[in-house]
Simulated scan of single mutants.
Amino acid sequence: MAGSFPCGTVDHGEDPETCARREIAEETGLDQPMHGILTVTWSPAGPRLGSPAINLVFDAGTVPASTPILLPEHELEAHRRAYPAEAEQLLLPSGALRLRAALRARETGTVQMLRSSGRLLTTHLRGTRCPRGPPSPTAPTPPTRPTSTSSPARATSS
């Protein structure tokens, strides 16, 4: 069974950051503030997706290992804490790609924009930098808990 990040779809009237925080709470019982977007992935419509989609991975900070995770019965069967190398083995290829990009964003302080095929589109979104910037070079990088939010890409007119 492949693992995944806490994730979900933006509800009507909800912004992506609120969605990410809500999904983490629903799937883990944690109330984590978001510290900015780490990755943006664009996926075209295809056999799996009926319409194009944009997937955002937010930085939800680091959760101490002693923090209890509460799994709602209707959401998840199990959870597992893993360091990045192990997490890559547990995730689907698309999740492993997003994890690598999210860690790169935390390291460099630069939002990563990907195409669902795995191709890096750009490493800089019009001057946007990750709010937290790169971690201190003297501090070890702890395991991260990125969260993912998907929303259909739709054009709107005024």
Rank of each mutant, 00 (worst) to 15 (best):
V63I: 03
L70M: 04
P134L: 13
T39K: 07
S4I: 12
L121D: 14
E88Y: 00
L70T: 09
E77G: 10
P44L: 04
P135S: 07
R98F: 04
R115M: 05
S151L: 15
S151P: 00
A20Y: 01
T9Q: 14
S136I: 12
P143M: 03
E23H: 06
A153D: 15
P6N: 12
T9C: 09
D59R: 02
T128L: 15
H79W: 15
E77D: 14
E88A: 12
G61P: 00
H12N: 10
G109Y: 12
H74Q: 13
L56P: 01
S148D: 14
E26M: 07
P152E: 15
Y83F: 10
T39A: 14
F58A: 13
I37E: 09
T67A: 13
S66A: 13
R21E: 12
V63M: 10
R126L: 13
A45N: 04
T141L: 12
L76K: 05
A105P: 01
C7Q: 06
A60C: 06
A85M: 09
P44N: 01
P146F: 02
S136V: 09
S150R: 06
G118C: 04
D31T: 12
T62W: 01
P33M: 03
L120I: 00
R129D: 07
G133S: 14
S158F: 00
V57E: 08
R115V: 02
S117G: 11
T138I: 00
R154P: 10
C130F: 05
S66W: 04
P93S: 07
C7M: 13
F58M: 10
P143L: 05
S148N: 15
A155E: 15
L71V: 04
A45G: 13
H74C: 06
L120H: 05
R145K: 04
L76T: 00
P47W: 02
D59H: 01
L120Q: 11
L90D: 12
A105R: 02
R80D: 06
G46H: 07
C19W: 09
W42F: 09
R115S: 09
P135T: 08
E23M: 14
V10N: 06
G8Y: 03
A101H: 04
V10D: 04
G61I: 00
S150N: 15
P64H: 00
E23G: 03
G36A: 08
L97V: 08
P84Y: 02
R154T: 14
S43E: 08
D11C: 11
R104Y: 05
D15L: 13
T41W: 01
A78D: 14
V111G: 06
R81P: 04
P135N: 01
S66P: 02
I24Q: 09
S116W: 08
Q89V: 02
P64G: 11
S66M: 08
T141K: 07
S43P: 00
R115N: 10
H35I: 00
T123N: 13
T128Q: 15
C130M: 08
P146Q: 05
A105K: 03
V40K: 09
T122V: 05
T41F: 03
A102S: 15
L125R: 05
G46P: 05
T62C: 12
R80A: 14
P142Q: 07
L30K: 08
G118P: 00
T9N: 13
M34S: 14
G127L: 11
T149S: 06
V57Q: 02
T149M: 10
G109W: 02
G61D: 11
S148F: 02
H124S: 11
L103H: 03
A65E: 15
A78Y: 09
V40C: 14
P135H: 09
P33L: 06
